[in-house]
Computed example of a mutant assay.
Amino acid sequence: MQQPDLSDAHWRKSSLSGSGPSCVEMAFVGNDVAVRDTKNRDGGTLIFHRNEWTTFINGIKSGHYDNLT
């Protein structure tokens, strides 16, 4: 997968994260979603297709990942 251009990405994090440094940020970039660590923004970015991201978020909302060990 080719890395999308992130130079104009509008990064955001959950309002539930507060002001702490231990969270991730995400940005919608075309048909992709970019995710990075706020503690190391230059350390790399994960790229997901929007369909993958939607499946992941729906899994979180439905509790699919609540009991993983």
Score class of each variant (00 low, 15 high):
28 F>V: 08
63 G>K: 08
56 F>Q: 10
55 T>V: 06
23 C>M: 04
58 N>I: 06
37 D>S: 06
34 A>Q: 03
54 T>I: 10
64 H>V: 11
18 G>F: 05
29 V>K: 13
22 S>M: 10
24 V>G: 00
22 S>K: 07
21 P>M: 04
59 G>P: 07
48 F>C: 05
47 I>Q: 00
23 C>Y: 00
60 I>S: 07
37 D>F: 02
64 H>Q: 15
45 T>W: 02
28 F>M: 03
51 N>G: 14
26 M>H: 08
23 C>V: 04
25 E>H: 04
31 N>Q: 12
49 H>Y: 10
52 E>N: 09
18 G>A: 03
50 R>L: 12
49 H>F: 10
22 S>F: 11
58 N>Y: 08
60 I>Q: 14
50 R>D: 14
56 F>E: 13
19 S>N: 13
46 L>N: 01
59 G>K: 07
21 P>T: 01
50 R>N: 12
59 G>A: 06
32 D>T: 08
37 D>L: 04
50 R>I: 14
46 L>T: 04
59 G>T: 04
20 G>V: 01
42 D>I: 05
54 T>H: 11
41 R>E: 14
57 I>V: 12
57 I>G: 07
64 H>G: 12
47 I>H: 01
59 G>H: 07
36 R>H: 02
47 I>S: 00
58 N>K: 11
29 V>Y: 13
35 V>D: 03
29 V>D: 14
56 F>L: 13
38 T>Y: 01
46 L>Y: 00
43 G>V: 08
65 Y>T: 09
65 Y>E: 14
38 T>G: 00
64 H>K: 15
25 E>K: 03
53 W>T: 02
25 E>V: 04
43 G>Q: 12
59 G>C: 08
28 F>G: 00
23 C>D: 04
36 R>S: 03
33 V>T: 10
37 D>T: 01
42 D>P: 00
54 T>D: 15
26 M>K: 05
53 W>C: 06
38 T>F: 02
33 V>Q: 03
19 S>D: 15
42 D>L: 10
38 T>E: 09
61 K>D: 11
35 V>A: 04
22 S>C: 09
57 I>D: 08
20 G>C: 02
29 V>C: 11
57 I>L: 13
52 E>Y: 06
59 G>L: 07
64 H>F: 12
45 T>D: 02
61 K>A: 12
22 S>P: 03
26 M>F: 09
45 T>N: 00
25 E>R: 02
21 P>H: 03
42 D>W: 07
52 E>A: 12
35 V>K: 02
59 G>E: 09
21 P>N: 08
37 D>N: 14
60 I>F: 11
60 I>Y: 10
54 T>S: 14
62 S>N: 14
36 R>F: 01
19 S>Q: 15
36 R>T: 07
62 S>G: 08
64 H>D: 15
42 D>Y: 07
50 R>Y: 09
56 F>G: 11
19 S>F: 13
38 T>D: 07
18 G>E: 09
28 F>K: 05
28 F>Q: 08
59 G>Y: 06
23 C>L: 03
41 R>A: 11
38 T>P: 00
29 V>Q: 14
47 I>G: 00
52 E>K: 09
42 D>M: 07
37 D>A: 06
30 G>T: 05
29 V>E: 15
25 E>L: 06
31 N>H: 13
43 G>D: 14
35 V>P: 03
63 G>V: 03
56 F>Y: 11
23 C>F: 00
35 V>F: 06
55 T>H: 08
65 Y>H: 11
62 S>A: 15
61 K>T: 05
27 A>S: 05
52 E>Q: 13
25 E>N: 02
